[in-house]
Design a protein around this nucleic acid. Structure first.
Length: 430
RNA sequence: GGAGGGGUGGCAGAGUGGACGAAUGCAUCGGUCUUGAAAACCGACGUGGGUGCGAGCCCACCGUGGGUUCGAAUCCCACCCCCUCCGCCA
């Protein structure tokens, strides 16, 4: 259940169109409608039979209580009737379980419809909302992997030895830069933006992976610890959003905002051979993620606010970037609206995605049963969830190295990070 | 990993195979009283689903999943989680 049965029944046309817009097979909508009808039918028959069975059992109870012999003929006669009904119930329940499972599966495969103003299409339909800073020309600049290797910051070869291709090792100033960025990001989010810091587990169970939508949509992108049936998280979004799974939040608790650092793991299945140099596409990377739980009416404003918080980091790092409103087929399963932040890397002359900020509306909340009470006496209603990276490290590191490189091969450290480097001003050849 | 104890409504905490969706207390909400508040008293108060215009009626849920039974919070089996002790360990 993700878009909700009510909506499935009320707006099937809209869901068919929205599903197709996201590049998915709209047939699931009709499959779900059909299963829902069968389920309700079975439910009605089953419930009626159960009522009959309960009634019969109640009569036996009353008879025994008023003195009838539990093993006598009178009770035996009563049992005959209720045994017959109980057998029917067993049959209906079995059929219902099958239909229910199929319906659950179908509902999990209906994507979250995109907001009405999201452009329909693929990459070509993305809209550049704004650009900040000046994308520097390449000039004599070199790609980050050359400098990082010369300065002993990143070792891909040894990473490949100890784990495999796409598992970089950060050393010396490279490691220090990771630590500086993580610390500074968290400091800004907690001290300036008031978010609560979280340090989550990096392995999660299947329920959690399903809650945020990694299962079944992105299952093959996750590493699985089969022996214990656990998944390595592809983003801190998974454990942090699941913090409130199956909870009813008290009135006045919202908004809840978290900032979490975690390592993130992605198999990058299907991307083998792409971006093999440097750290643009790796299996393990570090990221600080923002996660918000808000009242339904507040998620649109929250999306803009989270985007600003991510942008503020890039601005203070002095990196040129642009904000894209992503088109329907670029957006994935669970998002209703998504902004990508792309930073300019002059050494490779490319815009690199360093953040993705999304509004899920009530879609994840329904999967995870995260609700709140608008007031103390009110009925629980679903919250809206959002998240955004702020920021993913590897491409930010690449952009910093390429933007701040000097002709002599050293790298000037951005002002905001110097406190984390013992006030050093540059990373130079040892 | 071994031994023992335990998981029941927002919280605490009873619960004998049939009257139990579940006593009682606290919290919460509405009301009476009061100049106001407190106290006291009265009342309401779980979640999800089906059905009906509606009052309502029906079904399911006592950690999870199976089983026994006409009938399970209660009995049986498996698993998960928490607590105590022992062992191991960064």
């Amino acid at each position: 259940m993700s878009v909700g049965l009510q909506r499935l029944r009320d707006e099937p046309d809209m869901l068919r169109r929205a599903t197709a817009d996201k590049g998915e097979d709209a047939g699931v909508v009709d499959r779900a409608l059909d299963l829902d009808a069968r389920r309700r039918d079975l439910l009605a028959t089953g419930d009626a039979l159960k009522a009959e069975r309960n009634d019969a059992s109640r009569k036996i109870g009353e008879a025994v209580r008023s003195g009838a012999d539990p093993n006598g003929i009178q009770v035996a006669e009563l049992k005959v009737a209720s045994t017959r009904v109980a057998a029917l119930v067993t049959g209906i329940d079995a059929e219902l379980a099958t239909v229910q499972a199929a319906l659950d599966d179908a509902m999990l495969r209906i994507p979250n419809p995109a907001d009405p103003d999201v452009p329909v299409g693929g990459e070509e339909a993305n809209v550049i909302v704004r650009t900040w800073g000046d994308p520097l020309p390449r000039d004599q600049r070199r790609p980050h992997w050359e400098l990082a290797e010369e300065l002993g910051m990143i070792d891909n070869v040894r990473g490949a030895k100890i784990t495999g291709s796409g598992w970089p090792v950060y050393l010396g100033a490279g490691s220090n830069l990771q630590r500086a960025l993580i610390g500074w990001f968290l400091d800004v989010h907690t001290r300036e933006s008031g978010m609560t810091e979280v340090w989550p587990p990096v392995l999660v169970n299947a329920d959690s992976a399903r809650g945020t939508g990694q299962i079944p949509d992105k299952e093959d992108q996750m590493y699985v610890a089969t022996r214990d049936d656990l998944y390595l998280i592809p983003t801190a979004e998974v454990p942090v959003t699941n913090l409130h799974r199956d909870e009813i939040l008290e009135a006045g608790a919202l908004p809840i905002r978290y900032a979490a650092y975690s390592a993130s793991f992605r198999r990058e299945a299907g991307a083998a051979g792409r971006d093999t140099r440097g750290i643009l596409r790796v299996h393990q990377f570090d990221k600080v993620e923002m996660v918000s739980f808000v009242r339904p009416g507040e998620s649109e404003a929250e999306l803009e606010w989270l985007t600003e918080r991510a942008e503020a980091l890039l601005q203070r790092l002095g990196l040129a970037y642009r904000v894209l409103l992503m088109a329907t087929r670029e957006m994935g399963f669970v998002q209703a609206r998504k902004y990508d932040l792309e930073v300019w890397a002059p050494g490779v002359e490319r815009w690199l995605e360093v953040s993705s900020v999304s509004n899920f509306r009530d879609y994840q909340a329904r999967r995870m049963a995260i609700r709140h009470r608008a007031d103390a006496a009110g009925k629980p209603q679903l919250v809206h969830t959002l998240n955004g990276s702020a920021l993913a490290l590897p491409r930010t590191v690449a952009a910093i190295i390429e933007t701040y490189q000097q002709p002599d091969g050293s790298i000037v450290i951005p002002d905001v990070l110097r406190p984390y480097f013992g006030d050093r001003e540059r990373i130079g050849p040892a």
